[in-house]
Amino acid sequence: MWFTALSALWLAATAWGAVDRGEDGNVRSIALRTHTLKQPYLDSDMSSRWYDFGGDTIVRTDSYIRLSSDRPSQNGWLFSRVPLTATNWEVEVEFKIHGKNQLFGDGFAMWLTKERGDMGPVFGHANNFEGLGIFFDTYKNNRPGVVFPYVMAMFGDGKTTYNKDNDGKETEFAGCSARGIRNANIPTKLKLTYFQDKSLKLELQYKTEDEWQLCFETTEPPAIPSVTYLGFSAETGELSDNHDIISIEAKNLYTTGGSATRPTPGKGSSKSRQKNKNKSGGSWTWFLFKIVLVALAVGGAYVGYTAWRANQKRSHRF
C-alpha cells in the first residue's frame, strides 16, 4: 500500500532533521574519565584515582568537595593526577559559592596549568603560573565601573604576575560580571570549551536552570600548553565563603568530517565554508534521496502486486 512508501518518506525526513544541526552539528564528544569527578568522589581506599586534593579542602562523599570553608584564612586545592592532553575539549563544572555573611570573599579559580597543587596567593594557587586561569572573584578590591562577582580569564607565561590589588585588570584578556552567581537558587555551572588555535568559550548557568549565559568567546585563544593539569583552588582572607565543587565532567571533542578543528566565524573564506557545507549537505541529500527512491519502488511494487492479485481473483471468480 501507499502507506509503506509514506512511512519511509516520513522516516527519511526525520533522519534529515536529526542530521542538520547547524554549524556545530558535526562536533562529537568522548567522555574523559581521567578528568571527570562525581559523587562519591573517593574510591574504597578513601582516595581518588584521578584527582589529588590538599590544603583545607574537605571531601563530603555525599555532597561536595569544599575547597575553602566559610572561615577566615582558608586555602584549598583540587588537581587532576594526569595531564589533559586532548587537542579540543570541553569541561563542565557544577560548583557552589555560598555563605551567610553580608561581606564575603575571596573566590575560587579553575586552572589549566603546567603546575599542579602549588599553593599561593592567587585564589589559593601560586602566582607566576604557566597556563590558563579562570577566576571567580567575589570581592572587589579596585575595579571602578565593574560589577562583582566578576569572572575573568588570564593567561600566564610563567613570568607575569597577577595583581590582586586591582583584581587582575592589567592581565585580563576576557571576562564578564556575574551578579547572582553567589547564593543562587539553582545549580550553578560553568562550561569551558576549547578548540586549539580556533576558539575558547566560557558559558555560565546561574540565572535559569538549563539556560547558559555567554561570558566570553574568542577566536584567538591563548596558546594553552599542550600538557596541562586541570585543577581548582579557593581562598578566604578576613572575609570568607564556602567554595564547593559538586561535579566535573570532561569531554574530548572531535569532528565527524575528518578534520580535528572546528570552523569558526571570522576565519577562512566564506565561499570555502559554503562549499564544504554544500558538499556535506549534498552527500547526505543524495544518500537520503536514494533511500526515498528505494522506499517508493518497494511501495509501488507492493501496490502493483496487490492490484494484480485482486484482478486475478476477480478473473477466476467468473
Rank of each mutant, 00 (worst) to 15 (best):
Q74R: 11
A307W: 05
S233K: 01
T34H: 09
W89S: 09
M154D: 08
L112Y: 05
Y229W: 04
S44G: 06
I246K: 05
E209Y: 06
K38M: 13
R273D: 13
G282D: 10
A178T: 04
M110H: 04
E170R: 13
A31Q: 12
G99N: 06
E170L: 11
P40E: 02
K100Y: 05
L78Q: 05
V146C: 04
N128Y: 14
L200W: 03
L253D: 14
A297E: 09
T285Q: 13
G55S: 09
I58G: 01
V93H: 00
G22V: 13
N242Q: 09
S69A: 13
N163E: 07
S247I: 06
D244L: 00
K38P: 06
S73I: 09
A295E: 02
M119F: 13
A250Y: 05
G266H: 15
M46Q: 10
F216T: 00
V27E: 11
D165C: 04
T208S: 09
K114C: 10
W212M: 00
W16L: 13
K279C: 11
R71P: 01
E220A: 08
R317S: 07
E203L: 00
G300Q: 06
V292L: 12
A86M: 11
C215K: 00
E211F: 00
L11Q: 13
A295H: 02
T255F: 14
G268H: 15
S48R: 07
R21L: 08
V151L: 03
K251V: 14
D62T: 14
G99Q: 03
V227D: 06
P144S: 08
G175S: 03
